[in-house]
């Protein structure tokens, strides 16, 4: 008799709840469809969609670090943009040194130069992230107001340091030969670099999901997002986890910085602070702390920016703000609110 009592089953949630829960997944296709109807021309739409996805992927790369850091340690790093710029400058320094590789027609050399630049940028920003966490963030865990102010101060100082090291002028650099020009698909011109950006972004998203679901560190991060205290009570030093995640988040910003820089072919010390606007919008839309939400939010923002950029150019950025407003009216905490245990 007692056995039957011990074995209650899990109830299936009603269908409406399932749909409600999965609804954010439909947003991207729905937006694409609306875009197609509004634009009319199939090939223009295809070009814009590719551009939008590429932009979305790059924003996702930059935003993912920010959102995971928030989820795990309840810290929003307003200085995140500085790491984007720092990564771009570090990466461009390497690309500048490897001028021969970049101009050569060989894809292998091109790719090698980009990979080296990315690796160096991630190394630099990862290490800078270490310094930033220890010097600036560590003392203000749990104090939101001070955190915002102090990381904002960190942004100013880092930007100024970039000026000191690399000088006050913007740096212009052409993309490696292999990533210039476009493919023509179904009558639509799709820039090669955008395809690369989409590939890298997707690969990163898949890799992050795998790490988070298959590895012990990933499990710890997910557990820590929900209940950091319990992670400690199980015997894991969460401070070290914080530091590691912070460094990875900053390294991702650096990666995003190099990619964004190659996309624009120009970098400045405040480029990071500029893209941060879209990054913040994405993170808010997705729900603070959620990787899936961040991914969907980034795609939405990327696509919408490009569609409106074509239809009503002046409203491109404003349209993403309106999107954010609409999402918040539907879900006040963003698409995928992260449930905290305390």
């Amino acid at each position: 008799m007692s056995d039957s009592l011990i074995k209650p089953r899990i109830e299936r949630p009603p269908l409406s709840e399932v749909i409600e829960a999965k609804a954010p997944l439909f947003l991207v296709p729905v937006l694409m469809l609306i875009g197609l109807l509004a634009i009319g021309s199939g090939s223009t739409w295809l070009t814009l969609t590719a551009a939008g996805l590429a932009m979305g992927m790059m924003i996702f790369i930059m935003a993912s670090g920010l959102t995971v850091i928030f989820g795990l340690m309840d810290v929003i790093n307003f200085g995140h943009g500085a790491f984007i710029s720092l990564g771009a400058f570090a990466g461009f320094t390497i690309l500048g040194l490897l001028g021969g590789w970049i101009e050569s027609p060989s894809i292998a050399l091109n790719l090698g130069a980009v990979l080296l630049a990315v690796a160096f940028a991630m190394l630099v920003t990862g290490l800078a992230g270490y310094g930033f966490e220890r010097l600036i963030v560590k003392a203000v865990y749990g104090q939101h107001l001070k955190q915002i102010l102090v990381t904002m101060g960190g942004l100013v100082v880092t930007q100024q340091l970039i000026y000191v090291i690399w000088g006050p002028d913007e740096i212009v650099l052409a993309r490696p030969t292999a990533f210039q020009g476009s493919f023509v698909v179904l009558g639509a011109a799709i820039e090669k670099y955008r395809v690369l950006a989409i590939a890298i972004g997707l690969a990163l998203f898949v890799a992050m999901r795998l790490v988070l679901s298959r590895t012990r560190i990933g499990l710890l991060v997910r557990a820590g997002v929900q209940n950091g205290e319990m992670v400690e009570a199980l015997g894991y030093p969460i401070q070290k986890l914080f530091l590691a995640v912070f460094m990875v988040g900053c390294a991702l910003a650096g990666l995003g910085g190099v990619m964004w820089g190659l996309y624009q072919e120009t970098i400045t010390a405040h480029m990071g602070a500029e893209v941060m606007i879209s990054v913040f919008i994405v993170v808010i839309i997705g729900g603070l702390g959620s990787i899936e939400g961040c991914f969907i939010g980034a795609m939405l923002v990327g696509l919408l920016t490009n569609y409106t950029g074509f239809l009503i150019p002046k409203l491109a950025l404003v349209s993403t703000i309106l999107l954010m407003g609409a999402v918040l009216m539907w879900r006040p905490q963003g698409l995928y609110p992260v449930v905290k245990a305390h």
């Binding site: 499990l219 710890l220 997002v225 319990m230 009570a233 199980l234 449930v339 245990a341």
Partner: peptide
């Protein structure tokens, strides 16, 4: 409050 990691599976909870 039991401190269960609700997003993780039972298996993953035990694994940690």
């Amino acid at each position: 409050d039991m401190g269960i990691f609700t997003d993780l599976t039972v298996h993953e909870n035990m694994l940690l």
